Amino acid sequence: MRLRHRSGTTLHLGYCTNVHPAEDLSGIIAQFDTYAVPIRERLGTDVLGLGLWLAAPVAEVLAADPALRVKLRAELTARGLEVVTLNGFPYRSFHDPVVKYAVYRPDWTTRERLSYTFDLARILADLLPDDAARGSVSTLPLAWREPWSATMADQVARRLDQLAAGLAAVQSSTGRQVRVAFEPEPGCVVETIAQAISHLARADTGRLGICLDLAHLACAWEQPAAALRALRTKGLPIVKVQLSAALESSDPEALREYAEPRFLHQTRNPHGEAADDLHEAFARNLPGPWRTHYHVPLHADPEPPLRTTTPVLREALKELAGGRVPLCDHYDVETYTWGVLPPALRPGTPRQLAEGIARELEFAREQLRDLGVTA
């Protein structure tokens, strides 16, 4: 969806397709008809934005074939869909039975991660609507925290220099600007805003910046106003925002049914104590209250004593979009965990999933409208 900020800036609001498992082009196009078109129709909007997730194998094929990129763009346009942002965090196999730590590999020490991100930038340059100001690609926060060494930090610094140069070449050859956004996440080398500022201090901020995931921000127990002020002070741009909410509870036992085998659910309390997953938090009897990296539907309140971190989302949106000028223009709803919710909350059919995603987007649109953003 396209919304208009009071400054006249277009804000792009869509949903991230990493919630869907397809990893080949035919499967991705099939998703459009199964999910995206019904969502667009439910929302009553002429154009729906998708934050496409393209696994590395299909990205490599698309990047090598201009005709396939033309085909993909035509398939999107024919359905009233558009793409200004790609999710380049999961490399592949994001819906395997067990993902956990594998989602952080390959990391930014490797040539594979750089090549994948270049492929996404080339693809996005051709998918961007003609009137879009720029595109964005979100990516992992450098690496998982262990192992990490000075040698690895040097390797990452070289990759980021190569990345900036490659993005400049894409812009020179296509006339389209694509920026890459690093997404702080609990447990990673870049977990907090302070760490983002430190590790990206030498980055080309015209092409590289931050993807602010609001569930991750909450799980780090960061205050949105202070975090965003620090980014502005250091001149590190917010390239993309992922609208997400995590679980919170003062009674950790209420989270027991959310401990599941596919994704990692990093858990933190406000005293700085942490576990890499819910299973570990229970085993260690981590003191509460807990915030757990488990993306839950934005519009739905869980049964007490569980609650969500949507108050953090609202506070962050006020800072991001409530002022004279927006701090970011790309907003993606990113609830990828619909398929692993407790059975009573899990959609049983594609239609139910499409309905749930549409309700999330309605919620996000209303939050922005409350801040004076219009359709």
Rank of each mutant, 00 (worst) to 15 (best):
residue 2 R to Q: 07
residue 4 R to L: 14
residue 5 H to T: 04
residue 9 T to Q: 14
residue 10 T to E: 15
residue 16 C to N: 07
residue 18 N to F: 09
residue 22 A to W: 00
residue 24 D to L: 07
residue 27 G to N: 10
residue 29 I to L: 14
residue 31 Q to I: 02
residue 32 F to L: 11
residue 35 Y to N: 04
residue 36 A to C: 11
residue 37 V to W: 00
residue 38 P to N: 02
residue 39 I to V: 09
residue 44 G to Q: 00
residue 47 V to P: 03
residue 47 V to W: 03
residue 52 L to P: 04
residue 56 A to M: 02
residue 56 A to T: 02
residue 58 V to H: 02
residue 58 V to I: 14
residue 59 A to L: 08
residue 70 V to H: 14
residue 78 A to F: 01
residue 82 E to G: 00
residue 84 V to C: 09
residue 94 F to C: 05
residue 96 D to C: 10
residue 101 Y to L: 15
residue 106 P to D: 11
residue 111 R to G: 12
residue 113 R to L: 07
residue 123 I to Q: 00
residue 124 L to G: 07
residue 129 P to D: 11
residue 131 D to F: 02
residue 134 R to F: 10
residue 136 S to P: 11
residue 137 V to W: 00
residue 138 S to N: 09
residue 146 E to T: 12
residue 147 P to Q: 09
residue 151 T to M: 09
residue 153 A to F: 07
residue 155 Q to I: 06
residue 156 V to M: 04
residue 157 A to N: 12
residue 158 R to T: 14
residue 166 G to K: 04
residue 169 A to C: 10
residue 171 Q to G: 14
residue 172 S to G: 10
residue 186 P to V: 09
residue 192 T to A: 11
residue 192 T to L: 13
residue 203 A to F: 05
residue 208 L to C: 08
residue 213 D to W: 01
residue 219 C to F: 02
residue 223 Q to A: 13
residue 228 L to W: 01
residue 230 A to T: 06
residue 230 A to I: 04
residue 232 R to G: 09
residue 235 G to N: 08
residue 239 V to H: 01
residue 239 V to W: 00
residue 242 Q to S: 15
residue 248 E to H: 12
residue 248 E to V: 12
residue 250 S to D: 15
residue 251 D to L: 13
residue 252 P to Y: 01
residue 255 L to F: 14
residue 264 L to I: 07
residue 269 N to P: 08
residue 270 P to N: 10
residue 271 H to T: 11
residue 271 H to N: 10
residue 273 E to Y: 08
residue 279 H to A: 14
residue 282 F to K: 02
residue 282 F to S: 05
residue 287 P to I: 08
residue 289 P to I: 03
residue 290 W to N: 04
residue 291 R to G: 06
residue 296 V to D: 05
residue 299 H to P: 12
residue 299 H to F: 09
residue 303 E to H: 08
residue 303 E to T: 12
residue 304 P to E: 06
residue 307 R to G: 13
residue 309 T to S: 14
residue 311 P to S: 07
residue 312 V to A: 06
residue 315 E to V: 06
residue 315 E to H: 08
residue 319 E to Y: 06
residue 319 E to S: 10
residue 320 L to D: 05
residue 323 G to L: 11
residue 325 V to A: 15
residue 330 H to D: 07
residue 333 V to I: 10
residue 335 T to I: 13
residue 336 Y to I: 04
residue 336 Y to G: 05
residue 338 W to E: 13
residue 341 L to M: 08
residue 341 L to I: 05
residue 344 A to W: 06
residue 344 A to M: 09
residue 346 R to T: 05
residue 347 P to N: 10
residue 348 G to E: 15
residue 349 T to I: 13
residue 362 E to Y: 02
residue 365 R to T: 00
residue 368 L to M: 03
residue 372 G to C: 05
